[in-house]
């Protein structure tokens, strides 16, 4: 699907810094990601790898200061979102690119009803009156599986379960017919049984509404179930990206391999492996390849030079000095 469609979003050479009291956090380094029309791209990595920062930069949601976007472009149909006015940005936020968050508990305002919050968003983007906004909200809620939509509209967030709240968030995203849905760990805070339902809803809506989806997760299983392509991030860098099956079946980067090996599998009972060490401190990250202190294949060159992201196979990119040695 992706090879023939148009690019809707292009993140180019993005570099993000946080100023903290302990020093400058080098959170995102030269990240390049493309999102094609109608596709679902998974962005995977451990906590603190820069995946959420990258995606929040798209809608300029990070507070400045302390955040500084020091380099790069975020092109939405060729329009650089890092340059546009706040007014234009507010048309895009929700209207063209909608976002749902990890914590459905705290992502909705506790002192307004669901209806009030949804109507405000709909009226903002669709130039309709209150009554029309209400019926749009009801339709969206039904679409995400909340059948008693009118009751839900009159409820406050604390009166709903976590799964219902996340459905409300998705309905809110849906209600303004965005082209892109950014889902920032949408299932992490939910029960396992609810996770699958939420993913199924996102998958379904993406097809019925022809949305492109950027899904951030630390769970490779979620990627395997839902995405077309995947990008793996480590310590601020994209270290590997490509078609889902290429990356998951034949990973080229030692970090991706480590991630895959650390997934528990019930059928084959074997020792569960983990990646030794932990995510580096990004105030003073390792020189060269940021993964080298944890990598069993690291050599001298890895300590000196940052590996560039190169196309190892058609559509499959990797940033490792030794991918040729490691390839399957």
């Amino acid at each position: 699907m992706s090879s023939v469609s148009a690019k809707v979003l292009e993140i180019k050479d993005l570099q993000v810094r946080f100023d903290t009291e302990d020093g400058v956090v080098k959170a995102v380094e030269d990240v390049n990601l493309d999102l094609f029309s109608g596709e679902m791209l998974g962005v995977v990595g451990e906590t603190g790898c820069g995946k959420s920062v990258t995606l929040q930069s798209v809608l300029r949601l990070l507070p400045t200061p302390p955040t500084r976007i020091t380099r790069g472009q975020i092109l939405f149909h060729g329009e650089n979102l890092l340059d546009v006015s706040e007014e234009r940005m507010n048309e895009i936020r929700g209207g063209k690119i909608a976002m749902i968050f990890q914590e459905p508990m705290t992502s909705l305002n506790p002192v307004f009803t669901i209806g009030e919050q949804m109507r405000d968003v709909i009226e903002q983007h669709r130039r309709v009156g209150k009554r029309k906004a209400n019926s749009i909200a009801i339709r969206a809620l039904i679409e995400v599986g909340l059948e008693d939509a009118e009751v839900v509209l009159s409820k406050y967030p604390h009166e709903l379960s976590g799964g219902q709240r996340q459905r409300v968030m998705i309905a809110m995203a849906l209600s303004c017919q965005p082209e892109i849905l950014i889902a920032d760990e949408p299932t992490t805070a939910l029960d396992v049984s609810i996770q699958a339902q939420i993913l199924a809803i996102i998958k379904h809506l993406r097809q019925t509404h022809n949305m492109s989806v950027l899904l951030v997760t630390h769970n490779l299983g979620v990627v395997a179930q839902t995405c077309d392509r995947v990008a793996v991030m480590y310590a601020g860098y994209v270290v590997e990206k490509g078609e889902k099956f290429g990356v998951l079946k034949a990973p080229l980067h030692p970090y991706t391999r480590g991630l895959l090996e650390s997934i528990p599998r019930s059928r084959k009972v074997r020792e569960l492996r983990s990646i030794p060490g932990s995510v580096p401190n990004l105030i003073d990250p390792p020189e060269g390849c940021r993964f080298h202190p944890r990598c069993s294949f690291a050599t001298e060159v890895c300590k000196r030079e940052v590996p560039i992201l190169e196309e190892a196979k058609p559509g499959h990119f990797v940033a490792c000095h030794h991918w040729r040695r490691l390839g399957y």
Binding site: M89, F101, Q124
Partner: peptide, 26 residues
């Protein structure tokens, strides 16, 4: 700095409304 305020911003509500409606009542 709350997450529900980030949501209001992420859905394109103007700053006036975010501050004087969504934050103020809290």
């Amino acid at each position: 700095s709350k997450e529900y305020i980030r949501t209001a911003v992420a859905y394109g509500l103007p700053r006036r409304k975010v501050v004087y409606k969504y934050a103020l009542k809290n």
